[in-house]
Amino acid sequence: MDKPQFPVGTAFKTRGKHPRLCTVTDYHVTRNLAGEIVKAEYVATFELIGQKVKGLYPRTTVAMGVVQKAEG
């Protein structure tokens, strides 16, 4: 899973009682010394009280909440 499933600019809503509208801004991959992928997450931003907040989200969270898929 070296290549991200969702491109930068994809909008999604988080799950829970108070869902937030997030936008994918980057893709973060963590590897061990052998070069194997240990963790892959999407970096996304959302607005909270007028400020941009950055968070890490797994692929399933983005897949379940996709609102608009970016071109590309």
Rank of each mutant, 00 (worst) to 15 (best):
T30A: 15
D2H: 06
E41Y: 04
K13A: 10
P19I: 03
K3A: 12
L48G: 00
I49P: 00
Y57K: 03
V43H: 00
K13D: 11
C22Q: 10
L48E: 07
Q51I: 00
A70H: 02
R59E: 15
K39M: 13
K54E: 09
G55I: 02
G65Q: 08
G9I: 04
R59L: 12
A40S: 07
R31C: 08
T61G: 06
E36H: 11
Q51Y: 04
P19A: 05
V67D: 14
T45S: 10
C22V: 13
T25Y: 01
P4Y: 02
K39T: 14
F46H: 13
A70C: 02
T25L: 00
K17S: 15
L56S: 13
H28K: 14
V66Q: 05
E36I: 00
L56M: 12
E71F: 03
T61Y: 12
H28C: 07
E47C: 11
A70I: 01
D26F: 10
D2Q: 11
G9A: 06
G65H: 10
T23W: 02
R31L: 10
G35Q: 04
L21T: 07
G72N: 09
Y42D: 00
Y42S: 01
R31I: 05
K13W: 03
Y42L: 01
R20V: 13
M64E: 08
E71A: 11
T10M: 02
I37P: 04
F46Y: 15
K13I: 07
A44H: 03
V62I: 12
F46Q: 03
C22Y: 06
G72E: 05
K3Y: 08
V67Y: 09
T10N: 06
E41C: 05
A63L: 04
K69I: 09
N32M: 05
F6R: 11
K17E: 15
T60F: 03
V43K: 01
M1T: 12
F46E: 01
T23G: 12
R59H: 14
K69Q: 12
T10Q: 04
K39H: 10
A63D: 06
E47T: 14
L33W: 13
R15Q: 09
T14G: 03
A40E: 00
T23M: 13
C22D: 11
T61F: 12
R59K: 15
L21D: 11
G9E: 06
K69E: 07
T23P: 11
E36C: 06
L33R: 15
T23Q: 14
G55M: 08
V8P: 01
R15L: 09
L48C: 01
E41R: 12
D2P: 03
P19S: 06
P7D: 08
K13C: 09
K69M: 10
R15Y: 01
G65D: 05
T60H: 05
V29G: 15
K52P: 11
I37D: 05
Y42W: 00
A40P: 00
